[in-house]
Design a binder for these strands. Structure first.
Length: 417
DNA sequence: TCTGGGGTCCTAGGACCC
DNA sequence: TCTGGGGTCCTAGGACCC
């Protein structure tokens, strides 16, 4: 059996942990630049604020219902996530962290009442972190996802923990779930399914395998088997990331090459930091920029460029140089740029990396990067950065930011050079 | 005026090889 | 006029997730 544990309204719940006066009030958390709603408490959902709602369109609702509005505080959410995941890892030797607020546990060999086991987890996590969770347990991952949905939808009946462990429960759940709510079925596939008269998960499960394979690829076929109760989607081992990127919407439209270059430098630097953290080198870098799609009367331009690096590297200095070269090739004057980003990919492990005969990353950079990473890690901010880099956070609109409750150190900064 | 960010996996088709 | 067959690798783009 597999359990899928999901934190309820995760970001909103994190804000509540440190500000209990928010309990019972509608709470929303906004994306970077306070652009749109990315998390809502149950009360906020009840008012009719949808996921992804642009904040400016809903300000009247925020005011009318005295909604508590927060700018996203990702350092806080990341830290809370680590605490939740760490406590949950005690309930199975095999945990897959699926996202910031979700994980699967493989419960093989755990011979207890699984509904109660879920309730036990719930009590432990809420006591230890203050975060409410829901637990779904079933013979496959896709069914565990479904069980979790039921636990969340019917908290009074289930207590927040639901188990699909009989054929009868499985069929009943599949008859209840709409196809667009199946894990792995998005808008496009839902449309295809509707077109042939499949509205509920049970209809999807009853489709011929040939049709599913042809129209939804091997991914759809695996999903169908999983929902039939045949374990097909496996637990993933914790692996290193295969690509690392940083992208942002700018607070204002940028016109000049230098301004855009500053942002691209920062994105490259942030990505390179994460790359070194997992001890990889990358062999390819992608730079992309774009205009504002909501300004329909302006000419739209979304260029991107891939650069195959002449040697694998994780040096910020070298990566920034390549990123600048790429940007130079795609940047066109007379556009208002609203978005940009850098993606690093094609990784090799630092430990197995063999230097090539002719071109190599400058070995002197290794020491330099180690020192920079140490300083920035220690002081939780960019005490050391490139001269061509902007001051990251300063340009983000964050009008409603909560404190970094769990990660602030309030240390007085003295660095001897 | 104001509309997020970071990932994974799959496939078709082109380039290339013998 | 008529021009092979089989394979691998790479990549852009699509679809999906939270």
């Amino acid at each position: 059996m597999y359990a899928l544990i999901d934190c309820n309204n995760f970001y909103a719940s994190c804000e509540r942990v440190f500000n209990p006066t928010l309990i019972g009030m509608p709470v929303v958390v906004l994306s970077n630049n306070d652009g749109c709603v990315i998390a809502r408490s149950n009360e906020a959902k009840a008012i009719g604020i949808p996921m992804g709602a642009p904040a400016f369109e809903y300000e009247h609702l925020f005011r009318r219902y005295k909604v508590k509005v927060f700018s996203a505080n990702f350092p806080l959410y990341g830290d809370m996530s680590r605490r939740v995941m760490s406590l949950l890892s005690n309930y199975s030797p095999h945990q897959e962290i699926y996202s910031i607020d979700e994980c699967f546990l493989n419960l093989e060999g755990i011979n207890v009442d699984l509904q109660k086991y879920g309730l036990e987890m719930k009590a432990r996590i809420e006591k230890g972190t203050g975060i409410p969770i829901s637990i779904g347990t079933a013979p496959t991952k896709a069914l565990a996802k479904l069980a979790n949905r039921i636990a969340k939808k019917f908290p009074n009946e289930t207590g927040g923990s639901y188990v699909i462990d009989t054929e009868e429960k499985r069929i009943k759940a599949l008859k209840w779930l709409k196809v667009e709510d199946i894990w792995g079925v998005g808008r496009r596939n839902a449309k295809k399914l509707y077109a042939i008269g499949a509205y509920k998960a049970i209809d999807f499960v009853n489709l011929s395998e040939a049709w599913v394979r042809k129209n939804m690829t091997i991914t759809g076929l695996n999903l169908q088997k999983d929902l039939k109760g045949i374990p097909t989607i496996e637990m993933l081992e914790p692996e290193k990331k295969k690509s690392i990127g940083t992208s942002r919407t700018f607070e204002t439209d940028l016109r000049s090459f230098d301004e855009v270059r500053e942002r691209i430098t920062t994105f490259t630097s942030m990505s390179a930091e994460k790359l070194r953290e997992q001890n990889s080198f990358c062999k390819r870098l992608i730079v992309f920029i774009g205009t504002n799609p909501f300004k329909e009367h302006e000419t739209q331009y979304y260029p991107s460029i891939q650069i195959k690096l002449p040697f694998p590297t994780n040096s910020t200095l070298e990566l920034v140089k390549f990123a600048h070269e790429g940007l130079k090739q795609i940047f066109k004057k007379n556009h208002y740029y609203k978005r940009g980003g850098v993606l690093l990919t094609d990784f090799v492990d630092a430990s197995v990396y063999q230097p090539s005969l002719f071109f190599n990353s400058d070995p002197k950079h290794k020491k330099l990067m180690e020192v920079i990473d140490k300083l920035n890690d220690k002081y939780h901010c960019d005490v050391v950065r490139l001269a061509s880099q902007d001051e990251r956070k300063h340009k983000m609109k964050q009008a409603h930011l909560s404190q970094h409750y769990t990660t602030d150190i309030n240390e007085i900064l003295t660095v001897e050079v």
